[in-house]
Simulated assay, not measured.
Amino acid sequence: MPITHLAYLHGFRSSPRSAKAQLMGREVARRHPQVQWWCPQLPPSPRAAMDMVLRGMSQWPVAGTAVVGSSLGGFYATHVAETIGCRAVLLNPAVDPARDLARHVGDQTAFHAPGEHFYFAPEFVHELRALEHGPVRRPENYFAVIAKGDEVLDWREMTARYPGARIKLLEGGDHGISDFERHLPDVFRFLGLD
């Protein structure tokens, strides 16, 4: 069944202004205007972010719902998919953000607006731990695009996190998947929107 509702969750220090979010939003609007698109600015608190997202998606039909997440957003997308049973597209997903972001506690700048600051509080690390899940229950609900050249996250750890899922492993590449446009057809196909 093609999806009817699609959420995009950005990564740490990122925003709905990210290149991937903007590109995907434009392509969804152009090619699939019937799909409800939602790309919210996520608050720094993981608990608040997930409360907001799950509340915002609560009236969406599960069979027609999908979530796309990049980096930390991929970790969040996994939490959403495991919680409600929808499909998820993961773009270089963070696997253990509590471990990786513990060293980033403190004042942070927004990637797309360096003048904007936010505080990543110590308790946010514990909130990330609380969102962790064991092995994914329905690997067929997942499609991951993972770059071996990711300079932030280890591609081996990312692929090992999603056994049985559909994985597009890129030789080279980077954390931001700067050639994302090339992979959009595969993403849309997975979502039943080709």
Rank of each mutant, 00 (worst) to 15 (best):
P2C: 11
L6N: 06
L6F: 04
L9H: 01
F12K: 02
R13H: 06
R13K: 14
S14A: 15
S15E: 10
P16N: 14
P16I: 10
P16D: 15
A19C: 05
K20L: 09
A21F: 04
Q22W: 05
L23D: 13
L23M: 14
L23G: 09
L23T: 13
M24I: 14
V28K: 10
R31F: 09
Q34P: 01
W38D: 08
W38H: 12
Q41N: 06
Q41I: 00
Q41R: 10
P43V: 01
S45R: 02
M50S: 01
V53F: 01
L54R: 09
M57P: 05
M57L: 15
S58R: 15
W60S: 03
P61I: 06
V68H: 00
G69F: 00
G69E: 03
S71L: 06
L72D: 09
F75N: 08
A77S: 07
T78K: 07
E82I: 03
T83G: 08
T83K: 06
I84A: 01
C86R: 02
V89H: 02
L90W: 01
P93L: 06
P93T: 08
A94P: 05
V95F: 00
V95W: 02
P97A: 03
A98L: 05
R99F: 02
R99N: 07
L101W: 02
A102L: 05
A102N: 05
R103V: 14
H104Y: 13
G106E: 12
G106M: 11
D107N: 08
Q108A: 12
Q108N: 15
T109A: 15
F111V: 00
A113M: 13
G115R: 12
A121P: 07
A121C: 08
P122L: 08
E123C: 09
F124H: 12
F124Y: 15
V125C: 10
H126V: 05
L128R: 03
L131V: 03
L131T: 03
L131M: 03
E132C: 07
E132S: 11
P135D: 14
V136R: 10
V136F: 06
R137Y: 03
R138W: 11
R138E: 14
N141S: 14
N141Y: 07
Y142T: 04
F143K: 01
I146L: 12
I146V: 15
A147M: 10
K148P: 05
K148F: 05
G149P: 08
V152I: 13
L153A: 02
D154E: 11
R156I: 00
Y162P: 03
Y162R: 04
P163T: 10
P163E: 11
P163M: 10
P163W: 00
G164W: 07
R166Y: 00
I167Y: 05
G172V: 06
G172P: 09
G173R: 03
G173Q: 08
H175E: 11
E181L: 12
R182P: 00
R182V: 07
H183V: 03
L184W: 13
L184I: 11
L184E: 09
P185V: 11
D186G: 09
V187H: 03
V187C: 11
L191Q: 09
L191D: 08
D194A: 15
